[in-house]
Each structure stands twice: as C-alpha cells, then as structure tokens.
Design a protein around this nucleic acid. Structure first.
Lengths: 153, 153
DNA sequence: CTTACTGCAAAATCTTTGCATACAC
DNA sequence: GTGTATGCAAAGATTTTGCAGTAAG
C-alpha cells in the first residue's frame, strides 16, 4: 500500500469530497461528471483533457470536450485535482486526494513522470526566499532528464 | 557592475553572437531583427512577445507580430534567449547572454520576477535524481509568493 | 417545475504558417 | 538576380463561452 492509498480508496474518497462540494453549492451530480471522475481517479496519472475525454467516453459516449474541461475546473475547485504543465506542454491534471505535496521528475525521452518529496528542498526554499524578502506561498520544482531505462538505451 | 555585465556589454555581446549565427547560416541582417534585438537586450527582463512587439515598434514601426515571434525563435536558436513560462501564463523571453544558470522568485501580487542562484539546490537535485535513477539534464525551480512590498500592504 | 448541466459550435488566446512582396547580399 | 525576410491574414492548438435543449433535484 502506497503513501497515497490504493486506487479504490482514493476513488471513494475523491467521490465523497466531490459530492460534498456539489451538495454544498447546490450543484448536480450527472453521469458525465461521474464518468470523468472515474476516468480521472482510476488512472492516477498526469492526464491531459484530451486523454480524459477519450477515457470518459469509453463508459459514457455522450461526453463532450467542453464538459471534460468544465469537470476538471470543478474538480480543481473542489480540491481533488491539480493543474500541472510540464515542459510547456498542455495542462495535465493530477489527483490531489490523499496526496502529500511533492515535486516531479520528468523523463525527456519516454515522458514518464515520477514524483518525489524532500524536506531539505522545502527548507532551502524558505531560506532562499526569506533572504530575498519573499514569503513563499507555493513553489514548483521539476527535474528534467533521463530515467534509468532511457539512459541505458 | 553585476555578474551579468552591464546592459551595454550585454547588448554588444548579444549582437556579436547573433551576427555570427546569422552569417554561419547564410541568413540576413534586417532592421526588424535589429529593432527586436535592441528591445530585447536593453530591457533585461522577462518580456512577452506582445511587450517586445510594443517596444520594437517604437523605433521601427513596421515590425509585425509574426516577425517578433520569428525573431525570438531565432534568438533562442542562436542561444541568446531563453523561453520561460511562469504561472502557466504566456511565454516570456529572458536574455541568455553572459548569464549564469539561475532560478526564479515570482511575486503573486505585483508580478515582479527576481532571480537567484544556489549551489545547495543544484547539489540536492542531483542527489534526489540519482536516488531515483534519473540523470538530470535541466531543471526548473520557481518560488511563488509575496515580495517585501506586497507583503506589507 | 426550476435552474444547473450538456453538447455543439463559435469565440478567445497565444503562436505558427502560407503567400505575395520587399529587400539583403 | 536569387533566395531570405517581411507583413498580413489565415490557420493551428488549446481552452472557454453562448445558446438552446436536457435532465437532476
């Protein structure tokens, strides 16, 4: 069992949080939202809107592109998704359920995205920022390079 | 005098490098390229294509938008400019002449972009990456927060 | 029944490209 | 002269929005 919890737990927790957000705001639960949510949480990856559109349509063919975007914006608002943009490409969405803060390693060849967390980095950032009179709210740290597999070949 | 050299030196060096690149490839030196280059190097900031367009037109009114983009792509190719995209906004260009590697602090309120360099960060990155079997090629580290001025108000 | 949600297509935004003309070399 | 560079407008790519119909509560 990973730090993040298994896929089943995450999916249940994600649905619970989203339902709370929806009820609290007088919004509605629809089969499209369910399809996009399921695709999003099951994958546990950094998917683009296009990829989510493809996945969601597998179980609910009448999902439109706009709905995927509207869903993802809703999920971000509800706190269960985070937007990421690596390598200046399109936005990708990352599940934010039962997840700790982390940064990313991106393989330039195969595109695999790996996550890491390092307390020393967090502390150094505070140090550097305060030396410049900045108060850090959030940060972004991405390491681009070659993963084990791609470096060999 | 800063680490980066003063604006005059940087401009001369940038022009020298670009001219070398242009001659080497059989390209041509035009007044538009000169105008965009001058605007870009004089500002020494993180400007968008739109901002560069505005500046370049001041001394050369017949510069088009497409030319600004074409120029900036050429400058990146020649190695005198770097593309940056903060906060998922549009691309901004940063002079890369007589400049050391550095990372950025971005104020969320006033948008000011400050640069910093820290050897400890670089070393930690290598450490973290190699623990994951990654070989780092480049990285991106951005701290978002409030600068001195904006935190007070 | 009320009004939020949807799909579609059109718009917005940023960047690149095609084309005929202008101009370095 | 030859071929690169330019401006313009049109096309691309990604994301958002307007609208009339659909459906959740």
């Amino acid at each position: 069992m990973t730090k993040r919890g298994d896929s089943k737990n995450r999916t249940e927790e994600g649905r619970r949080i989203l339902l709370g957000h929806i009820k609290g705001k007088g919004l509605r639960w629809t089969k499209q939202r369910d399809a996009v949510l399921a695709a999003f949480l099951k994958a546990n990856a950094h998917l683009s809107a296009e990829e989510l559109y493809g996945l969601a349509r597998k179980c609910c063919p009448d999902v439109g592109f706009a709905t995927v975007y509207r869903c993802m914006n809703l999920f971000v608002e509800a706190g269960i998704a985070k937007e990421r943009r690596f390598n200046d490409e399109r936005v990708r969405y990352e599940p934010n359920v039962m997840a700790e803060h982390h940064d990313h390693l991106i393989c330039l060849k195969c595109g695999v995205i790996s996550e890491f967390e390092d307390e020393r980095i967090e502390k150094l950032q505070e140090l550097i920022a305060s030396a410049k009179g900045f108060k850090v709210k959030h940060h972004r740290m991405e390491l681009y390079g070659l993963c084990n597999k791609c470096d060999d070949s």
